[in-house]
């Protein structure tokens, strides 16, 4: 062990200690007066104040953000819907925007009608075709199909890669110069490949097929996660009772994952009027592929109109809200809440 020599403190060190001791003494004296029982007498109030301060500190910025970018934004959206501007830049309040929206809705052949039709097609396709398919696919993953992890990886890749990249790939694959285009020519002996993304005949199909090609990943994960959480005992008991493959799927697996499934359905219902494919990236609306979300984007971004789209948005929100509520009510009716 090192032999420690006692070093005489310097005058500075002595002075420093003296000051420190004095402060300490004062602090003890003050505290003793404040909290004579040795406990912090004022602690309840002080603690409460500290806690409140902390809560305000934590929530201040997020709540401000919410107030500005959600509350104010939607409030001004409602104002916009009731406004129209004069040529000199000033504006006045009117309900004309709504009148126009309803007039457009009643008239046939309008862009708006096309948008609504396509949006509903996307909605039905996403939920009537892709969602049930995801359910079946997840079940096969759950039942450990060969090469399971490799396939799961592949199904997930489209959601890892940017839509800009995926649409680029898709576009070039279907191009006259791409493999699908060439295959088409070889099979049909056609002289040229049709304009898949611009013609009225093919554009919607091309978009729907794109959704099918890339649309499994998230649902697959959610449903797969829910299936993995089904308690082993339930499945074992059923298997011991001699339940077959399909019976297991429909009578055990589906009801057991119902909470997840109903959440997916409710989310889907809230997208009933915003469902779309990558219209902007693939067709830009040509070939009669306008959807409501692209229509609004087109109006705001490309035509610099603010009032009419805001009115339309308000009308659409008013339509969607009851749909979501009814769906919530209905999904709650199918099975009682399953807890495990």
């Amino acid at each position: 062990m090192r032999n420690r020599e006692r070093v005489e403190p310097t005058w500075f060190e002595k002075a420093r200690r003296k000051v420190k001791d004095t402060f300490y003494g004062v602090s003890v004296a003050v505290n003793h007066k404040l909290y004579p029982n040795g406990k912090k007498a004022a602690s309840a109030g002080a603690r409460r104040r500290k806690e409140t301060g902390f809560i305000i500190f934590m929530l201040f910025i997020p709540v401000c953000n919410f107030l500005i970018f959600y509350v104010y934004c939607n409030f001004s959206s409602i104002l916009l819907a009731f406004q129209q501007s004069n040529p000199d830049g000033s504006y006045f309040f009117t309900a004309d925007n709504f009148v126009q929206v309803f007039q457009k809705l009643w008239k046939g052949g309008e862009m708006l009608n096309q948008s609504i039709r396509n949006t509903l097609i996307f909605f039905i396709f996403d939920n009537g075709v892709i969602l049930p398919l995801s359910l079946f696919l997840s079940f096969f993953f759950y039942k450990r199909i060969a090469l399971k992890s490799y396939f799961r990886f592949m199904f997930y890749v489209p959601s890892i890669v940017s839509s800009v990249v995926m649409t680029t790939l898709y576009k070039y694959l279907l191009d006259a110069n791409g493999p699908v285009g060439m295959l088409y020519q070889a099979l049909t002996h056609a002289e040229s490949v049709p304009a898949f993304f611009n013609s009225k005949e093919y554009a919607m199909w091309a978009l729907l097929f794109y959704n099918l090609w890339t649309g499994f990943s998230v649902n697959l994960l959610l449903i797969g996660g829910a299936m993995a959480r089904i308690p082993d005992e339930t499945v074992e008991a059923a298997l011991l009772d001699g339940v077959g493959f399909w019976r297991e799927l429909f009578s055990i697996t589906f009801p057991m994952i119902w909470p997840t499934l109903s959440t997916i359905i409710i989310c889907a219902a809230s997208e009933v009027l915003t469902a779309s494919g990558p219209v902007l990236l693939l067709t830009g609306g040509s070939g009669e592929t306008y959807t409501l979300s692209y229509y609004i984007y087109d109006q705001v971004q490309l035509q610099n109109q603010y009032n009419a789209p805001a009115a339309l948005g308000l009308v659409l929100t008013a339509f969607t809200f009851p749909i979501v509520m009814i769906t919530r009510w209905l999904t709650g009716k199918v099975y009682a809440d399953v807890e495990f």
Binding site: C73, L273, A310, G313, T317
Partner: peptide
């Protein structure tokens, strides 16, 4: 609640 068509207002904001 899905807010549709808030695009115009959020762009302006």
């Amino acid at each position: 609640i899905p807010i549709i068509g808030g695009l115009a207002a959020s762009y302006k904001l």
